[in-house]
């Protein structure tokens, strides 16, 4: 599990996160939800040690992440951010291949090739593998980066709003893949989500952030209620049932 304790972070004197104490369970899909500017992405960046923080401690399985080295972290967690761009002309298969860098340092083995092909097929990229990254659509590019993180084959996978550019089909496929990684391979996933229906349909655990603090957190079925979600987004959110599956209505 990842344990965040007394984490405080500010940018130029403006507090972004203050005194965060939260545990992200291993072997689960944890959804990070909350309104814009709540600090979800920042929390993800802090956990992945992309930015140094003022105060607090983040541990993974008892190991202080701030004291680990980058190569060691790369074998434990993979991160997909929101800003995905590469200046050089790179083919999708080569990009996904970089996911194996922590293991092979630029010298791919047959096992690496196998993992790369597997990731490509899981994210429906086989037909696109020889295309250049700057010649595919935003959603396809996003899938390529997620496939790269998947090829990294780490215990933890951290995704910042991965559904942003994806169509219905690929969004659902992505969530299915993540579910399988968790259920079959025992991986742990932390995912920033905006669409509450994806959160309640796929996540096991919810961490809700609001204005830099934890609004509520816990197992999905216990904490995600009409009241808590309505208060979090300051918008009426109504739970319902649609063809036997939970559904939230907040559109109008």
């Amino acid at each position: 599990m990842i344990k965040v304790s007394e984490l405080t972070y500010s940018i130029a004197g403006t507090p972004i996160l203050h005194d965060i104490n939260v545990t992200l369970p291993a072997g689960r899909i944890t959804a990070l939800i909350g309104p814009n500017g709540a600090g979800k992405s920042t929390l993800l960046h802090l956990i992945s040690q992309q930015i140094p923080f003022d105060r607090g401690r983040i541990t993974m399985g008892g190991l202080d992440l701030a004291k680990t080295t980058a190569p060691a972290r790369a074998l434990k967690m993979a991160v997909v951010g929101q800003q995905l761009g590469v200046a050089s002309r790179i083919r999708i298969r080569d990009l996904v291949g970089f996911g194996r860098w922590p293991y092979n340092h630029g010298r791919p083995t047959p096992k690496d090739q196998e993992k790369i092909s597997e990731a490509l097929s899981h994210f429906d990229l086989i037909g696109l593998q020889d295309r250049f990254l700057d010649e595919v659509s935003g959603g396809q590019r996003q899938r390529a980066f997620i496939a790269m993180a998947s090829a990294q084959d780490t215990d933890w996978l951290l995704l910042d709003e991965p559904l942003n550019n994806l169509d219905l089909h690929h969004a659902r496929c992505l969530m299915t893949q993540l579910r399988e990684k968790v259920d079959r391979e025992g991986k742990s996933v932390v995912i920033v989500l905006h669409d509450l229906n994806y959160a309640i349909s796929w996540a096991d655990h919810v961490v809700a952030l609001d204005k830099g603090s934890i609004a509520f957190e816990g197992p999905l079925t216990e904490v995600a209620t009409t009241d808590s979600l309505s208060a979090l987004y300051r918008t009426p959110v109504v739970f319902g049932d649609l063809a036997g599956k939970p559904f939230v209505q907040y559109h109008r």
Partner: peptide
């Protein structure tokens, strides 16, 4: 080969374990 990884950008390169 390290330069190839650096070209992915700082966040990606660090995520893949480079002392960027």
């Amino acid at each position: 080969a390290i330069l190839d990884v650096m070209a992915l950008g700082r966040a990606q390169a660090r995520g893949l374990g480079l002392a960027y």
